[in-house]
Simulated scan of single mutants.
Amino acid sequence: MKKKILYVEDEPSLGKIVFDTLRLQGFEVSWEQDGGRVMDHFESFEPDVCVLDIMLPNMDGYELCRSIKQQRPQLPIIFLTAKVNTEDLVQGFEAGGTDYIRKPFSIEELIVRINNQLQLQQLHGGHHIGDNQPEEITIGKYKFRPQRYELEAPSGIINLSSREGELLQMMASKGSQIIERKELLLTIWGDDSFFNSRNLDVYVKKLRNYFSEDENIEIQTLRGKGYLFLVR
């Protein structure tokens, strides 16, 4: 069965080249030029990977990514953009992106990135972290339910993405032991590339924000080594 690519790009000439090339490579491709129209047929198409430009009419790539992640939290999303600032990179990961390619790019690189995301998706689908995870873990004032990717805070329920849940489970399982940065990257993302490293930074920041209601919980960064997940 062909893998499905949702491709969103408003530049006609580039879009046509990428669309035709991906189809020649054996993918089924849905190409949309208007960000505001994507969600109308998103569920019926059921993509395996999304490739999104950031500057789009009616709904930009960041907002579109957030909308997609609300419906399919584990769906890989690759951003294509001419933006080069680190802030843009971080914003893309915060929105839920899993990879990032700067324009101009080669079609060969895009295909490699797509195949990499598909392989990682298959890995996570067949081999989840902690197959025998407990139903509930108490962390200070919080309760973490790893099987449902759910964190219960004093103020209410926080629904975690799959990678947020996996990251929290790995950190919590180490107790007061150091967990190496490279171990997190290889286990959760499958490689320790620069892009995934920045993605990890975003997710650690998110977890710190989630635990802000309990001053006795701290995710401590040990530069050059990794992290300590401390519950005093």
Rank of each mutant, 00 (worst) to 15 (best):
I5Q: 07
Y7F: 14
Y7A: 03
V8W: 12
E9Q: 08
P12T: 10
G15Y: 14
K16I: 06
K16V: 03
L22G: 08
F27M: 07
V29I: 13
S30R: 15
Q33S: 14
D34L: 05
D34A: 03
D40Y: 06
H41D: 15
H41E: 15
H41I: 14
H41K: 15
H41S: 15
F42T: 12
F45S: 05
V49K: 14
I54P: 01
I54L: 04
I54E: 01
N58H: 15
M59K: 15
M59V: 12
D60I: 01
G61I: 11
Y62C: 02
E63D: 15
E63T: 00
C65N: 05
K69R: 11
Q70M: 09
R72G: 00
P73V: 02
P73H: 06
Q74S: 14
L80R: 09
T81H: 00
A82D: 05
K83Q: 08
V84L: 00
D88P: 00
L89D: 01
L89N: 01
Q91P: 00
G92V: 02
F93S: 00
F93L: 01
A95L: 04
G96P: 02
T98Q: 07
Y100C: 02
R102K: 08
K103F: 06
P104W: 07
F105A: 05
S106M: 10
E109S: 13
L110F: 09
L110V: 06
I114R: 14
N115P: 06
N116G: 13
Q117I: 05
L118W: 11
Q119N: 15
Q122T: 04
H124N: 08
G125V: 03
G125H: 09
H127S: 10
I129C: 03
G130K: 12
G130M: 14
N132K: 13
E135I: 05
E135S: 08
E136M: 09
I137F: 02
G140M: 02
G140P: 01
K143C: 01
R148F: 08
Y149K: 08
E150L: 13
L151T: 11
E152T: 00
A153W: 08
S155V: 00
I158M: 08
N159G: 02
S162P: 00
G165R: 06
L168F: 07
L168I: 07
Q169S: 04
Q169K: 10
Q169R: 13
M170V: 01
M171N: 01
A172T: 10
A172G: 03
S173T: 05
S173H: 08
K174W: 07
K174H: 13
G175Y: 06
G175T: 04
S176M: 06
S176F: 07
Q177L: 07
I178Q: 10
I179F: 00
E180P: 01
L184P: 00
L185D: 02
L186R: 04
L186S: 04
I188Y: 13
G190L: 04
G190R: 06
S193P: 00
F195V: 01
N196G: 04
N199T: 02
L200D: 04
V204K: 13
K205W: 03
K205F: 01
L207E: 10
Y210L: 10
F211N: 10
S212I: 11
E213C: 09
E213S: 11
E213N: 12
E215R: 12
T221Y: 05
L222V: 10
L222S: 02
Y227T: 03
Y227V: 04
L228K: 12
L228R: 14
L228D: 07
F229I: 06
L230I: 12
